[in-house]
């Protein structure tokens, strides 16, 4: 119980730290194409670690295996790349059609 919760605590901190750094990168990077990269830290490993912590925590808490977090992990894994690719295509298109640099 104690070992499990200590392990879950480490996972939670690491996952949240990755999500934090992802958003910090979103803030700090200079161009749009550079800003695309950091948030994927939060959506891949960050989410994965926090979901693993949630599985460990609830399994210990309820005394039976709780694994439905896998579904959320699968959802994030398959949907994030799709939105990012769509967004990059939209950005490329907008840059091609609006070289005057007007905002929005």
């Amino acid at each position: 119980m104690s070992a499990a919760s200590a392990f879950a605590a480490v996972l939670v901190i690491l996952g949240a730290l990755l999500a934090f750094l992802g958003s910090l990168g979103l803030l700090r990077m200079r161009t749009f194409y550079e800003r695309i990269h950091p948030p994927t830290m939060g959506t891949t490993l960050g989410t994965g670690l926090i979901l693993a912590a949630s599985m460990i925590h609830f399994t210990a808490l309820e005394g039976r295996p709780v694994v439905h977090e896998i579904l959320l992990g699968g959802l994030m894994t398959f949907t994030t790349p799709v939105t990012y690719m769509l967004l990059v295509r939209a950005a490329r298109r907008r840059e091609h059609h609006a070289d005057d640099g007007s905002d929005d």
Binding site: A19, G22, S23, L26, F32, R35, I36, P39, G42, T43, T47, M76, T83, Y84, L87, A90, A91, R94, D103, D104
Partner: peptide, 15 residues
């Protein structure tokens, strides 16, 4: 630009 805003919205909902 608008694409930055959409990207931020995505990061916001994940967080």
């Amino acid at each position: 630009r608008a694409q930055d805003r959409v990207l931020s919205l995505d990061a916001l909902y994940v967080n």
